[in-house]
């Protein structure tokens, strides 16, 4: 368990460093950086490399935005196994839904309860 925290820190930190390098050295905007990271997560999932990383680093792999791409693919594949190619489209948000629904719900709640800052 201690090892899990340690590797979550290392792997999670490294993914953020990759993002930082893309912004500082690659001169990308945060929007571009995050989009590329999400695509990278989806591609890694395509090669079955992201699941082992989650086994190894836990939240270090599930918290960075790359996992969004991974779980989109995972949901699509899960459904594709059951219903064939059509499942690719219908299963997409099977696994990922909580991130987006939480962002929508809490975003709306935030807009109700908080005042915009300056």
């Amino acid at each position: 368990m201690i090892a899990m925290f340690f590797w979550a820190f290392i792997i999670g930190g490294l993914i953020c460093v990759i993002g930082q390098l893309m912004m500082d050295v690659g001169k990308l905007t945060p929007g571009h950086t995050l989009s590329i990271l999400v695509v990278a997560g989806a591609v890694l999932a395509g090669f079955d490399l992201y699941e082992p990383l989650i086994d190894f680093a836990g939240a270090g792999a599930t918290i960075p935005i790359t996992s969004f791409g991974n779980s989109l693919v995972a949901g699509a594949m899960q459904e594709a196994e059951k219903h064939g190619v059509v499942g690719v489209l219908t299963g997409m948000f099977e696994v990922t839904s909580s991130g987006i629904s939480a962002a929508i719900v809490f975003g709306f709640m935030g807009a109700i309860f908080f005042k915009p800052k300056g």
Partner: peptide, 15 residues
Amino acid sequence: LFGVFSAFIVALIKS
């Protein structure tokens, strides 16, 4: 957008 679209392509190829 890019997450969903790339995941669609990847999953399509994989399946």
